[in-house]
Design a protein around this nucleic acid. Sequence first.
DNA 1: ACTGTATTTCAAATAATGTTGAAACACCAT
DNA 2: ATGGTGTTTCAACATTATTTGAAATACAGT
Lengths: 129, 129
Amino acid sequence: MTEDRKDRDASLPLPPDVEESLCRSGGIAGLVEQLPDDAALTRESTVHRALADPFRLKILAMLSVQPLCVCVIKAVLAIADSKLSYHLSVLKTAGLIAGDQQGNWIIYRLTEDGAMWAARPGNGPRQEG
Amino acid sequence: MTEDRKDRDASLPLPPDVEESLCRSGGIAGLVEQLPDDAALTRESTVHRALADPFRLKILAMLSVQPLCVCVIKAVLAIADSKLSYHLSVLKTAGLIAGDQQGNWIIYRLTEDGAMWAARPGNGPRQEG
DNA sequence: ACTGTATTTCAAATAATGTTGAAACACCAT
DNA sequence: ATGGTGTTTCAACATTATTTGAAATACAGT
């Protein structure tokens, strides 16, 4: 399929170390083949963006303990309703949490994805090292 | 130390399910104790922010194969020099990559942290399922 | 229907991040 | 020193994310 794997490096001058190991990787074409496709990268960057905020990480950590209604989360975070709602919507849109209505309340819980991202090195209770 | 663990939930009305399991978690105070501290959350959100971009994830994936000079990364990403430099600086600032000068080139590689974050579910080569 | 509580939505203001092209810097070879 | 190549920095601009307070929605009890 790819006709000229190694030839493509020939077009640009490289430091010796890189040239050698790149050659072993199958040249630039070989390197590219080992990368995730763009859709996967976009999907993953979306999750990271959703996790790129301390409030949201804290929400995830809380839900990691147990499902909670908004009012408890609000009591812990001590932020305005609308602000909390915004952060919840970011997490929900990213597919990390889901809310189930129960009477007057909405109880949020981790989704399968959310649980996967919450259970991660550096996410243990309290400081890590 | 914490004098009134369970009393604090008494102040706010909760859905029965949440109230019960929250009680088992030691009330709101008990829940809070299980959360990472703010410094840890901030630190982690910083890493996620650095990973919240497809270009940067692709760079990380590339360096996960082998160390590379900027010109090779540029050839794969096909973006302007200054743009690439910006994204490299974000990753470098987050402590995920480091650059070693070698003659005219700068060769970037994953740091220990970078390798840890690059080796992650959903980061395998090509689509995941 | 009406009230009260829990939560979300909206639009406007602010802040943070990403992009661009030009200029600067660092290094090697001459 | 000069010139060429690889890479970064800068400032202006464009885009996107976050915060805020007010208004809206949804539900339960009366």
